[in-house]
Simulated scan of single mutants.
Amino acid sequence: MAPKNKFTKEQIIDCAFDIAKVNGINSITIRKVAENLGSSIAPIYVNFNNVEELKREVIRKLIKVSNDILGKQDSGNPFLDLGVASILAAKKYRALFTDFILNPNTYLEEYDRGMEQTILAKIQSDQSLQGFSEEEVMTIFLKMKIFQTGLSIMVGNNLLPKELGEEQIINLLEGTGHDIITAARLRKENNND
Rank of each mutant, 00 (worst) to 15 (best):
A34I: 04
R60G: 03
V46S: 11
R56A: 07
V58K: 04
N67H: 05
L54K: 12
N50R: 05
K32A: 13
R60H: 07
K91Q: 06
N49C: 04
K64Y: 08
E52V: 12
S75V: 09
D112P: 00
K21C: 15
A121E: 10
E110K: 10
Y111L: 15
N103M: 05
K91I: 03
A42D: 14
S66F: 10
V65R: 08
V58Y: 04
L120I: 13
V58R: 04
T29C: 07
S39M: 02
L54G: 11
R94V: 05
R94H: 09
I19Q: 06
I101V: 15
S125K: 12
F100E: 04
K91P: 00
T118A: 11
Y93L: 12
Y93T: 05
M115A: 08
E57V: 01
I19S: 11
D81A: 08
P104N: 10
N47T: 02
G83A: 05
G76E: 05
D18P: 03
N47Q: 14
N50E: 10
L80D: 09
N103E: 13
L102G: 00
I123V: 13
R113L: 14
Y111R: 08
A85M: 03
G114C: 04
F97R: 07
D74R: 14
N105I: 07
I123A: 05
I44E: 11
S128V: 07
I87Y: 04
L102V: 07
L120P: 00
G71M: 13
G71W: 12
L96W: 11
I41Q: 15
Y93V: 06
L88N: 13
L129P: 06
M115E: 06
E116D: 13
R60S: 12
F17C: 08
L108R: 14
V65K: 07
K72P: 00
V33K: 02
V84P: 12
I25C: 06
L82N: 10
V51R: 13
L88V: 14
S75L: 02
N105A: 08
L129W: 06
